[in-house]
Amino acid sequence: MSGESSHKLLLKQTVDAVHSLSEDDFEAFYALFKPFSAKRKEILTFAGTTERYLYFVIEGLQRMYYADENGREATLVFSYTGNFACILDSMLSQSPSKYYFETLSQSRFLRTTYQQIEDLFRTNPNIEMLLQKGLLGGFSGLLERLVELQSFTSEDKFRQLLKRSPHILQIVPHKYLANYIGIDASNFSKLINSVQI
């Protein structure tokens, strides 16, 4: 299978898991996307700028994070192969982001602009439904994450993360996992040893 056809199949599998499209509708959606590559530790969206793109991850690892005025960072979301990724609130509202979107490894994507998506969903109810269902799934995930942050111990947060993404330990550097959970990186190895995996 060629690179392009395997990327197309991966995108189709991800789309079908959200909302199945007819062949014509999927082809119209797929036609929006163009290949894009980024180096390791490249910031694709800076805080203060407006997100212009929706990315579909073909290869690599990325994170969305918040940085305060003292340079402290809070990792909010990881993305990797088979995920859509962007600073969603900035893209949908077309307003400046409060967050950064950064590659943690060399990454390859398919990407499209917000304007292209908006133009297509205005004329295609199935694409609009795909976006609505995708947003609903993202919103549900956000609510689950808020419950974790406010109610769970570090161990419980770690267990939930492993339950959602069992392979995460193999692809994300431990310092970023520690930051995501909200503990000091020096305590992360103790956490791994204390949690039954």
Rank of each mutant, 00 (worst) to 15 (best):
T153P: 03
S20A: 01
P96M: 14
Q150R: 05
S165D: 12
L110M: 11
S165G: 02
E155L: 09
R108M: 03
T50K: 10
N179K: 01
G82W: 04
L135P: 03
N70L: 11
P35F: 07
P173Q: 08
Y114I: 02
Q170A: 14
R63W: 14
S105A: 12
S97M: 07
I197Q: 13
A67P: 02
E118I: 13
E4N: 10
A67I: 11
R52A: 15
M1C: 04
Y65M: 06
T50F: 00
E69I: 07
S90Y: 13
G134D: 08
F152H: 07
Y100L: 03
N179E: 02
M64W: 00
V195R: 10
R108K: 10
F33R: 02
K98A: 15
T50I: 13
S107W: 04
L177A: 07
R164D: 13
S37T: 07
I58A: 05
T81C: 05
N124G: 04
Y80F: 15
Q62G: 12
T49D: 13
S154W: 02
T50M: 06
P96G: 15
G182D: 10
A17V: 00
L143R: 13
M1Y: 04
E144Y: 01
L88S: 06
I168F: 01
Y66F: 15
K190F: 10
Y66I: 11
G182R: 04
F46L: 10
L177G: 06
Y53L: 09
I87W: 03
G134H: 14
G134K: 07
V195G: 09
R63M: 12
D24A: 00
Y65V: 01
R164Q: 14
S189Q: 06
F33D: 05
G48T: 04
S95Q: 15
L149F: 08
G3Q: 10
A47N: 07
K34F: 01
L44K: 02
S107Y: 11
L161H: 12
I117L: 15
F139Y: 15
S189L: 06
L44D: 01
Q116S: 14
S5W: 00
D119A: 14
E23K: 00
S6T: 10
Q132K: 14
T123W: 03
E144H: 09
L162T: 02
Y176I: 06
P125D: 00
M129L: 14
